[in-house]
Simulated scan of single mutants.
Amino acid sequence: MYWETSGAPDGVPAVWLHGGPGSGLGAGGYRNRFDPAQNLVVGLDQRGCGRSRPLIVDDLGSLPGLTTQRLIADLEALREHLGIERWIVTGASWGSTLALAYAVAHPERVIGVVAFAVTTTSRDEVDWITEGVGRIFPKAWAAFEAASGRHPGERVVEAYARRLADPSEEAADDRARAADAWDAWESTHVSLDPAWQPGPLHEDSVQRAVFGTLVTHFWAHDAFLPGDEAILARTDRLAEVPVVLIHGRHDVSGPVITAWRLHQRLPHSELHVVESEGHGGPVAVELTREAAARLTAEAARNVRDIPDA
């Protein structure tokens, strides 16, 4: 697993969780969400993507064991390796799901959660982004559905997940076609975002395959958080954890209702709805930076207030 640190070695730890699943850290712009003089900033490419190896497309046999619980265990292993007692957990889109799932599993290790483009990757959310939003883009969705090759009774996301997970050599061309069709749909449903730019979501064919494989795998399994394991069903675990939720009003791919439901179940949380943005943007980034700074300052004060032994 690839990971990196930056900022102040003795600063308040903060970990960034990227979206996707499968997007990776990218060029490192996530560091701008933190104060390098006050934070020890931790970033990682989640298992199977980015600079972590092997890429999931080179190790499809490992896909059945790749679950949210596995990613949470990776985070715990990294925290222990770095000697961090507690950290601020932040993430966007899928990263917000992972951040919240980690906090639910290990609230004692979390100073606070900052999540923007808030998702919990529930069945309802996945069905919306893969089928329901087709009511807004009917022509593109018809092509997306037709290209899925789904069997009777099979959800669209399940069909793409099945095809992208097929490790056989003879399925290589079909995997590429499925990855291309998935990428085209992703580019469509984000097109109402004020920050949208025309073109493929991923220019590189390997990245398209990595992204499509991991997204469909996690989405087809409700993030491996079914029923009473779902984030919304376990918000009592976050009763003592500061939570900041940031979401764009124009986020058609993930409507603000998810952030609202979380806020209703977490009365102590903050909810910021950015009226001018969609699935992220400069205002959301600035709100993330401000929230991380507040949590950092509070954590630093708490350390100073601990009496000497």
Rank of each mutant, 00 (worst) to 15 (best):
V12L: 00
V12M: 10
L17E: 09
G19I: 02
G20P: 07
G22R: 02
R33G: 15
D35L: 10
L40E: 08
D45T: 10
G48N: 07
G50I: 08
G50T: 11
S52Q: 09
I56P: 05
D58W: 00
D58H: 14
D59T: 02
L63I: 07
P64H: 01
P64Y: 00
G65F: 03
L71Q: 14
D74W: 11
R79T: 08
G91M: 10
G95T: 04
A99M: 08
R109V: 11
A115W: 06
T120F: 02
D124I: 12
V126I: 14
D127L: 10
T130M: 09
G132F: 04
I136M: 08
P138M: 04
A142S: 12
F144L: 04
F144I: 03
R150K: 14
A159S: 13
Y160M: 03
D166K: 02
A171Q: 12
R177N: 13
D180H: 13
W182M: 13
D183P: 10
H189M: 14
V190P: 01
S205F: 01
A209N: 00
D228T: 10
E229T: 11
A230R: 15
R234N: 15
R237N: 04
E240K: 08
P242A: 11
V244E: 12
I246M: 05
H250F: 15
G254M: 11
L262H: 01
L262V: 04
H263K: 14
R265G: 15
L266F: 02
P267M: 06
V273R: 03
G280S: 06
L287K: 11
L287Q: 07
R289M: 02
